[in-house]
Write a protein that binds this DNA or RNA. Structure first.
Length: 318
RNA sequence: GGUGCCAUAGCCAAGAGGUAAGGCACGAGUCUGCAAAACUCUGAUUCCCCGGUUCAAAUCCGGGUGGCACCU
């Protein structure tokens, strides 16, 4: 049974932990292709802020699902999973191995756990309606309504988490099922993948934070300001506009804050993002941790990664 | 040298005799169609130091130390 599954190597971890270079090294060793698992690198442009791998960094390894969506288009986990699955089947069909690489925990989990998304689950107008009702009647009214149809879901939601309360009601509205039941249904089909996951982290948090700070400085040196100026002046979808790296610089362009203040804030937001990423991966079982401060260089780190990968027996080096 | 103001958590900061607000950061956590988002939890046995007044002092008084401002 397990043999019919597609073996997947996944490299995850917080931003600036070195996923890209490790993934490229692993791809080289196993003759694999890289599939991105990143909610922001999917967009065209946005190269510097999202730290997209450059041609140089890719070292000839094909990278998929990077830079193919316009920033004014909304995107979603559901779309990601559909595209990623197709990509993986395609690569596997060509008898190549796959390395999934990226730091978007939701995308990673949904793909590897094979969460099923149905086509009729969204209704933006209804969402808007609920949002207006929350303004006039208060969130508690909506939470109470949810409690009446799905007490389990309501019990787990905090009153301030309006977005999730609305989503739970929206699902009931569009599918007739509670979100609790719906979530149960969405994980009925077993995953077609057999995944070995490696999460990069640092034993000393400061090591990671120093890398983040340095990388932001590097982004500035390579033209982040120009990219941000252009980004902020073009139409944006609701996903892309959340990217870290542009909105933090906006107060500077508007003359409201000094550049230094904005840069400090950008670094801080990036550090906090890294922390949330770690929280996400921490609660997933069967993740192998590799600590970047345990290794002298990328080769040693890749050797350690290969040891973990080969223990599973699905992979042979080329 | 003189005068005035200030000193509260890592940072910003309220409190003005009745037993230490709040914000940010840090740390931890939640997560099923916006996820680089959104949301939750968490910190001072003590208010620069010493002494005094008082049933009671971060709050009042005296002295010291440090900072800022102005004057000579």
């Amino acid at each position: 049974m397990a043999e019919s599954k597609i073996p997947l190597i996944a490299i995850v971890g917080p931003t600036a932990s070195g996923k890209t270079s490790l993934a490229v090294e692993i791809c080289k060793r196993y003759g694999a292709e890289a599939v991105s698992c990143d909610s922001m690198q999917i967009y065209k442009g946005m190269d510097i802020a999202t730290a997209k791998p450059t041609e140089d960094e890719m070292k000839g390894i094909p990278h998929h699902l990077i830079g193919f969506v316009n920033p004014d288009e909304p995107f979603s986990v559901a779309k990601y999973c559909e595209l990623a699955k197709n990509k993986i089947f395609d690569i596997h069909g060509r008898n190549k191995k796959i390395v999934l690489v990226g730091g978007t925990g939701l995308y990673y989990s949904s793909l590897t756990e094979n969460i099923e998304f149905l086509p009729e689950e969204t209704d933006f107008e209804y969402r808007e309606l609920l949002r207006k009702r929350a303004e006039t009647e208060g969130s508690q009214v909506l939470l109470d309504e949810l409690s009446a149809i799905d007490p389990e879901a309501a019990a787990k939601l905090h009153i301030n988490n309006l977005g999730r309360i609305i989503r739970a009601l929206e699902i009931h509205h569009t599918t007739g099922k509670t979100i609790t039941a719906q979530n149960e249904c969405s994980k009925q089909t077993p995953s077609p993948f057999e995944t070995v996951t490696i999460c990069l982290d640092s034993r000393d948090r400061q090591v990671l934070y120093d890398r983040i700070n340095r990388r932001v400085d590097l982004m500035l040196e390579t033209g982040l300001l120009d990219e941000a100026r252009e980004f902020l002046s073009s139409p944006l979808g609701r996903t892309a506009k959340q990217a870290i790296g542009y909105k933090e610089l906006d107060p500077y362009f508007r003359g409201e804050k000094s550049l230094d203040e904005c840069i400090e804030n950008l670094k801080m937001q990036t550090r906090r993002y890294a922390k949330r990423q770690l929280t996400w991966f921490r609660r997933i079982d069967n993740i192998n941790y590799l600590y970047i401060d345990d290794y002298a260089n990328g080769i040693e780190l890749a050797d350690a990664a290969c040891d973990i990968i080969e223990r599973r027996g699905d992979f042979e080096r080329e």
